[in-house]
Design a protein around this nucleic acid. Structure first.
Lengths: 116, 116
DNA sequence: GGTTGAGTGCAACCAAAGGTTGCGAAAGGT
DNA sequence: ACCTTTCGCAACCTTTGGTTGCACTCAACC
């Protein structure tokens, strides 16, 4: 269910800083390492490393513009990541519901048979 | 939007091993560090550390049974985690849709004004 | 009841990841 | 030309995930 590529995607969006970075890029449009670092609690170099990670898994791509490097979200890849998220979420959700249903069934049997 | 507690939850389920562990606990019911390590590509000690992390954020809780420690998923807390997942997912999804709509609008304007 | 075996916890040690500082190089503004 | 901004690289530190090794506990069995 979770292959190697998917794991890469997950660990990419698993980091809170990287998640916030994607949030910022989505909300404010393309940005640079410096512009992002101004809105994050880490240094520009740390942001730069995170950008490299996100770039490596294809969640963002860079566009050189003079002395700046504009990064922007790859919509298709992010859509894939979102699909992963909701897949895991719904799997767990379904299992939780199943467990709850079984528990209720057992409870019902017990009260029916023992009466208290 | 993402507080400190939520970040803890996220980083807990961000690890692929921990995600698989939750999967196993949900699918097969309560298990021990040893039983889980038999179905995972890491040693018992590594599993034990992951169990400690999951326990610390409240996603699972242990139940001593003789010389064994049975861990099982805390349904309420996992439900919260699932809610986090779908929240982030739907946020990104909405922004992606918004971006796409804007892009289409721009494209439409361009073709209307310049004709190609 | 002592021995043996499975399960656990603790400690030491290693490698990778995230973060920082420092520096040098390229590109733009004055 | 000069200064500023932005970037990339390298060294270093800390945390985290992983391993091995060892000692302890509890259950089972003779």
């Amino acid at each position: 269910m979770s292959a190697a590529v998917d794991d890469e995607l997950w660990s990419a969006i698993g980091d809170p800083i990287r998640r916030t970075m994607i949030d910022l890029l989505l909300a404010d449009g393309p940005g640079t390492a410096t512009s992002l670092s101004r809105r994050l609690p880490v240094t520009r170099q740390a942001v730069s490393k995170h950008l490299a990670v996100l770039d490596r898994v294809g969640l963002i791509h860079a566009e050189p513009a003079g002395r700046e490097r504009h990064y922007q979200v790859d919509e298709a890849q992010l859509a894939r990541a979102v699909a992963q998220l909701s897949a895991v979420g719904s799997t767990w959700d379904a299992r939780l519901r199943r467990i709850k249903r079984i528990a209720e069934t057992i409870e019902r049997h017990r009260t029916t048979n023992q009466g208290g």
